[in-house]
Amino acid sequence: CARGQAENYIKHLKGDLAADRTSCTSFLANCLRLLLHAAAYVLHQQLRTQALQHTALSQAQPATVIAKLFKIAVQVRQCKNRIVLHLPSACTVKHLLQTLTERLYLPTPAKRLNSS
């Protein structure tokens, strides 16, 4: 039911993104922390629904996406006009990362407006 799904969203926000950590001493600092955690969850939802569409992680929980895509040992080299990531040879998500970076960074053609 809808209430159960809402509870799951709250569980993901608290557990996977640590939104229940409001240990600052001032109200404004805790409010900012909660706002940043909510923004991180919105970014995760957009990543799942837009960039990870039709992939194995399209329905994954935030903890799974974080573990598979962001917690990877990689060597970063900065070239003149680009950044090169050297993944380990045993990386199981190479193709998924390539698909994701292509969807996020390749420019899309601008839509033409009809001038009538």
Results as ranks from 00 to 15, higher is better:
T64C: 08
L106I: 13
V42H: 00
R82E: 10
V93Q: 10
L13T: 06
A73R: 15
Y9S: 09
Q78K: 14
K80Q: 15
R33L: 08
V65Q: 04
I83P: 02
L34A: 02
E7V: 02
L100W: 08
N30L: 06
A18I: 12
H95R: 12
K14D: 00
A60C: 01
L34M: 06
H54Y: 11
N114H: 12
R33P: 05
L96A: 04
L85V: 06
L17Y: 03
L34E: 06
L43W: 05
C24F: 11
L34T: 00
H44E: 09
C91L: 12
P88L: 12
N114C: 14
A18N: 15
R33A: 05
Y105M: 13
L43T: 03
R77L: 13
A18R: 15
P107L: 12
C24Y: 10
H86F: 09
L17A: 00
K14N: 06
R48W: 05
F27S: 07
A67D: 13
D16N: 02
K14T: 02
H86L: 10
H86P: 04
Q59L: 10
P109C: 13
A73T: 12
H95T: 11
P88W: 07
A40F: 02
I83H: 04
T25A: 12
N8P: 00
L13N: 03
S115N: 15
N81Y: 00
A29T: 10
A51Y: 06
D16K: 01
A60G: 02
L43K: 10
L57K: 05
T49A: 11
S89Y: 07
L13S: 01
K94P: 02
Y41F: 07
L52H: 00
T49F: 07
T99F: 03
T55M: 05
S58K: 14
K111I: 14
L43F: 09
A73C: 13
H37L: 08
T22M: 15
H86M: 04
Y105E: 10
A2K: 15
R77Y: 09
R82P: 06
L47Q: 02
P62T: 06
L13Q: 02
G4V: 14
A29W: 03
L85N: 05
K94V: 05
S23Y: 05
Q59T: 08
A110V: 15
C1G: 13
L43I: 02
D20S: 07
Q98F: 00
L96V: 03
A51H: 04
R112D: 09
P88R: 14
P88E: 10
C79N: 10
L57D: 01
F70I: 00
L13K: 00
K68V: 12
R48I: 08
Y9A: 11
L52C: 02
N8M: 14
E102G: 11
E102L: 14
A38P: 02
A60D: 01
N8E: 13
L28T: 09
L13C: 03
A38R: 07
A90V: 11
N81H: 10
K111M: 09
F27G: 08
R103N: 06
T108W: 01
I10M: 11
L113G: 00
R82K: 15
A6D: 05
A29F: 08
A18T: 11
L97D: 01
D20T: 06
A18G: 06
L52D: 00
N114Y: 13
K80M: 11
T99S: 09
T101C: 14
K71N: 13
Q5M: 14
L113Y: 03
P62M: 04
G4P: 03
L104P: 04
Q75H: 15
S116Y: 07
V76S: 08
Q50K: 15
L13D: 01
V42D: 06
